Amino acid sequence: MTDGVDERPDEPAENISGGPGGGGEHIEGEVDDPRPTEGDADTDDGAPATRAEAVVDELGEMYWQKAYGGQAAFECLVRTILSQNTSDKASQPAHDSLMARYGEGADLAESLAAAEQDELAETISSAGLYNQKSETIIRLAGRVVDEYGSADAFDRFVKSEAPDEVRNTLLEMKGVGPKTADCVLLFAGGRNGVFPVDTHVHRIARRMGLAPADADHEEVREAIEAAVPPEKCGFGHTAMIQFGREYCTARKPACLDGPEACPLVEYCDQVGIDELSGEVVDPADVVADD
């Protein structure tokens, strides 16, 4: 355990939510020891009420505890579209190039709504799927301009309206899925209780037994949001992604090197992992074989 949040590592720059432009503020103070004790359902002493909360508390100790919010909503939407089906390391240069070309001294939504697709595709080529993503971004920019008038007005909508209304509105936009909508709610809207589910969170939650092994992304989100206090969902999401990159990888999770290699092994059901053979399968495949 660390003695305080100042000793935790900074969020990596190559992270849709992290780095200097990622927004979010460190939560002051220390976290109670998250390891469950007997009668851990009783939270009067600060012990976590669920295993999922205990996992998130441990992740907060390992990495960071931050309260998110403050990103410009339309830029956050664009940034998340760029990150789809690619790494943050690849999407970050695309975001930077897009902002340099279309965001300086202009309303970003208006500028992108008027962009030539081949020019935008070239600008964001490092993100992959650039033809599809450029088409989506121009279409979304046009809708934002038509319905809200500007990126600033869209930002006010995201930050002031009821979260369910904002989420439903975003999901009605072609090219915006649940993870993208939740990222906008969290990183722009600063809404507590939102736990976006990407491929890392989807894998880890089912592998650890925090959600059913055959749960889809929405079912994982519902399970975690029901089990983790709202104020812990934001950093739980970003820290779980980092844990997935460093320890609980898709093909070779750290536990294959022995229990001591994974700091969260005591919380994990290891669904789909055979330590003896070294075989790793998707947790859903375990259910299918039963």
Rank of each mutant, 00 (worst) to 15 (best):
I27W: 00
D289R: 14
S126G: 00
T2R: 14
S91T: 08
T37A: 11
D10K: 11
A162Y: 05
R191F: 05
A151D: 15
G177Q: 04
A215Q: 05
R245Q: 13
R8V: 02
D57Q: 13
D146I: 04
G177A: 13
D290W: 07
H200I: 03
V145E: 10
R139T: 12
G209R: 08
D40G: 05
K252R: 15
L98M: 15
R203A: 03
P259Q: 08
Q92D: 01
S125Q: 13
E14M: 07
S87D: 05
E222C: 00
G175L: 09
V265R: 11
C76F: 00
A113E: 09
A106K: 15
A288P: 01
Y148R: 13
S126T: 15
G142V: 10
P163K: 12
I81Y: 02
E275S: 12
D107G: 08
E165L: 09
V55N: 07
D289I: 01
S125L: 02
V194P: 04
G234D: 08
A162L: 06
D107H: 09
G103Q: 06
L77W: 05
G103L: 10
M173H: 08
H26T: 13
A121Q: 09
D152S: 14
E119D: 15
N192T: 10
E11D: 10
I138Y: 02
A127C: 13
H26L: 13
D40R: 13
D216T: 03
Q242P: 00
L210P: 02
P93T: 07
S134T: 09
D182G: 03
Y102G: 01
D6S: 13
P93G: 05
S150H: 10
A100F: 02
D6I: 12
L140N: 08
L82C: 02
E165P: 01
R221H: 03
E122W: 00
P12Y: 06
Q65V: 12
Y148L: 05
E119Q: 11
T2G: 01
P178H: 11
H26R: 15
R207M: 11
D274N: 14
G103E: 07
V228L: 05
A41L: 14
H200R: 12
N131H: 12
S134E: 05
G236M: 04
G236P: 05
I137R: 05
K252Y: 00
E231S: 07
V281P: 01
V280C: 04
V197Y: 03
L59R: 10
Q270G: 00
V5Y: 12
P48G: 06
C183W: 02
E110P: 03
S91D: 03
D40V: 02
D88E: 07
Y130Q: 14
P36Q: 11
T123I: 09
G46A: 06
V281Y: 01
V280S: 01
Y63A: 03
D6A: 14
R101M: 08
T50Y: 06
S83I: 03
I81A: 02
T169D: 12
E246T: 14
G4W: 08
E246V: 13
E122A: 15
A205N: 06
V145F: 06
E104L: 09
G4Y: 08
G272S: 10
G272Y: 11
S111F: 04
D40M: 14
R167K: 14
T37R: 15
P263K: 10
A162S: 11
P36T: 12
H217F: 11
G234A: 09
D118Q: 13
K179C: 01
E172C: 00
E14I: 00
E135Q: 14
T136R: 15
R203Q: 07
